[in-house]
Nucleic acid binder design. Structure first.
Lengths: 400, 400
DNA sequence: TTAGTTAGTATAGTCAACTAACAAATTCCA
DNA sequence: TGGAATTTGTTAGTTGACTATACTAACTAA
């Protein structure tokens, strides 16, 4: 469950008196969050801890207000268990993803249920406007959830660009035309809880894995829209490269000696396999205007004859990139978040078949999946990242 | 120090009474292995543990025979510390790498010092011959080190191909023309200690990191010879993909629509940037025979005019692949093990400059290094992998 | 020779998990 | 209807490893 490979409550820590308590609490919280329908006895069985240990931990979690008893459960024989669950109403996390013209804001309760999903228009994409809009969403949520035990405990922000992990500084966002924006610092003046700022593809990957391959150690997620973004769990941990922007797989060369890309490299996959590239190809194919995103999606569903070549090329370019990713990283699951592919099951099937044909046989066990989270993925992932940190804090509390 | 992200003594483990002892012992062993010149007091300072805890752990490690006192150390003031170190003579690890015509065998003592490095010719590359040769090397080492506390405690075997991690089965090795060879099981009949079988590039990566970037979380290693192999540490853990063969980066496409590769993919980097590809280009350039590896290395040093174009193309192809790797994985250090580049510093410098020019600016902090381990890397890494497991065992012993 | 400093040990206390025994609640079956 | 069996959860006491505190040991410098 943890987004981190080495759980932060273990990493770099000496084996002091609290270590086992902390490890066990994390284990129990993970079990409680993963399945509903747990009791003290079932937790003991699944965790390998004794009933006594579980009871004492559960008592503390209930006292903290994060776990609640929900009455008697079913049993074939013997005393009925007292069912336990994370108390969703204990607190809330807000996830915001930034686009050029709007914010997408998702709210989740402590149990992980989405309780709100809204779009806020932005006057412009300047850092000031964005920070202002985030501040107002945060303010509203803070007020709304003031009554609950932990209130609005965390905010996650998904940025389409490179983010320095430690400081939450946006190093560079081509989409927003930002350079060196201290986003976290700016938002922190309006919110003093858990605040996480990350790359949108990275955060989307957190959400997609939770949905499609919870617990998978090696999981890659591709986001295909204007450009091609990606994120990856490797060895069970989400991978942040430099500046939290792992996975510029869009800027692998697929055409050696090809045209220069704005990124500085040549013949990048992004120039051939992105939605933007497809739209430009469609425009050229009909010798007319370049379709916008909505029209391209409609065309992908309709598949008019004149567009066939463009779509076939698109799948072909996607195949080349996906095979490169599969061969070089050997994930067990690869999720693709693409509105175009979502609109055309046939195209996705063609891609799957082509990848299976070309990928190295011993790694082709990799499962290709189409994401269904769509545009919401980064905001949902931002929520999850904030919640993750919240639970990490709970683990340390009372144990440190 | 651990080759694993989540230390195996923590992963999946509940916080029982021994957990802290195990964690602390691992911590102390890592410190002892990393630097020489430790004392109980310095270990306490560096580990954050109390002197009492350190003393009691050290007493057990000395009783186990893995740590020894080496007399008084220097001090400016006050009582002189009793210096401690891993007792190299406590035991030995053997690392073997398999080539078509010979075995390369490296022996290390428990302190990590290489004590022997030999080549054993092979009559042929059949599984029977290889297993027989390994068995005889192992038998000799077992006999030689019989007197020491732990004797020959482990054997690591580096295979040029895909290896199933759990079982040590060689799924496929094109170089050796092996399919489905239960190598670990076969060798286990001649050796009952720690036995690790792995992909050669993966094991070489372990060795290269230890040398060039000990402790680096994100580290990629490329091995360029007949083909292009690679290994990577991501999030501080060596990454095994499917079948222990992460990093078929050689089979990323760099020429979309290019020629079919034996692997099933098209336009693979391997077809353009490997030593084999270079040698074929050199042969074509002089309209003569394809040079063998030794001649190619000599030519790389001499750089005759007729070969200039081939070498320039070679660097160009390498650049494309390296930039793709750097952009998509964002490692902090990338080590290249290539006899050709080692023979021509100018070529390596040209590669470095071209990569810096084309890689995305925010990830170009990645440091490119030329490996000096050369052909020995896989065998050295195999030793290290065996030693790693040995120390993991020590950590659990007396704590479980 | 004595004060000051650093290394390492001895002893007692604390914490959290464990074991064992028990109380509570429920079903099955005579 | 009333035990026997079974499962849930708690209470009481034990254990192991770390910590704090206080000590001895060894050494430098003035």
């Amino acid at each position: 469950m943890s987004e981190f490979g080495i759980p932060p409550y273990v990493d770099g820590r000496t084996g002091d008196k609290n270590l086992s308590k902390v490890v066990n609490r994390a284990l129990l919280l993970d079990l409680l969050r993963a399945r509903s329908g747990a009791s003290r006895a079932s937790l003991a069985k699944e965790s390998g801890l004794t009933k006594v240990t579980v009871s004492s931990q559960v008592a503390e979690l209930i006292a903290l207000g994060i776990v609640k008893e929900t009455g008697a459960g079913a049993s074939d024989l013997g005393r009925k268990p007292v069912m336990l669950e994370i108390d969703g109403a204990a607190g809330y996390a807000l996830g915001v993803s930034i686009a050029t013209d709007r914010l997408h804001a998702v709210t989740m309760d402590a149990a992980g249920a989405t309780v709100r999903d809204e779009d806020c228009p932005l006057p412009d994409a300047s850092p000031e406007s964005v920070v202002g809009a985030i501040a107002s969403v945060v303010r509203a949520a803070k007020k709304k959830y003031r009554q609950s035990r932990f209130g609005l405990f965390g905010v996650g922000i998904a940025v389409p660009g490179a983010v320095e992990r430690e400081t939450g500084r946006v190093v560079r966002s081509a989409k927003l035309d930002w350079s060196d924006v201290p986003l976290k610092k700016a938002v922190a003046r309006h919110f003093d809880g858990i605040l996480r700022v990350g790359n949108d593809a990275t955060l989307a990957t957190i959400a997609e894995r939770e949905l499609y391959a919870p617990g998978a150690d090696d999981f890659v997620c591709l986001l295909i829209d204007e450009g091609i973004g990606s994120g990856a769990y490797i060895n069970g941990a989400i991978h942040y490269g430099h500046n939290g922007q792992f996975g510029e797989v869009g800027h692998m060369t697929i055409v050696h000696g090809g045209p220069r890309c704005p990124c500085g490299n040549e013949g990048c996959w992004d120039l051939y396999g992105s939605e933007l590239a497809l739209r430009q190809a469609l425009g050229a194919a009909r010798s007319g205007p370049v379709p916008d995103a909505a029209e391209a999606i409609a065309l992908a569903g309709a598949r008019p004859a004149w567009a066939e070549g463009s779509f076939r090329d698109f799948v072909d370019y996607l195949t080349t990139g996906v095979v490169s990713v599969v061969n070089s990283m050997a994930p067990t699951t690869l999720a693709i978040n693409s509105a175009i592919l979502a609109a055309s099951p046939a195209m996705f099937e063609a891609l799957k078949a082509a990848v299976a044909d070309r990928a190295m046989s011993h790694v082709s066990a990799c499962e290709l999946r189409l994401s269904s989270l769509g545009k919401a993925a980064p905001a949902v992932g931002a929520c999850m990242a904030a919640a993750e940190r919240f639970f990490e804090g709970l683990v340390l509390r009372g144990g440190d």
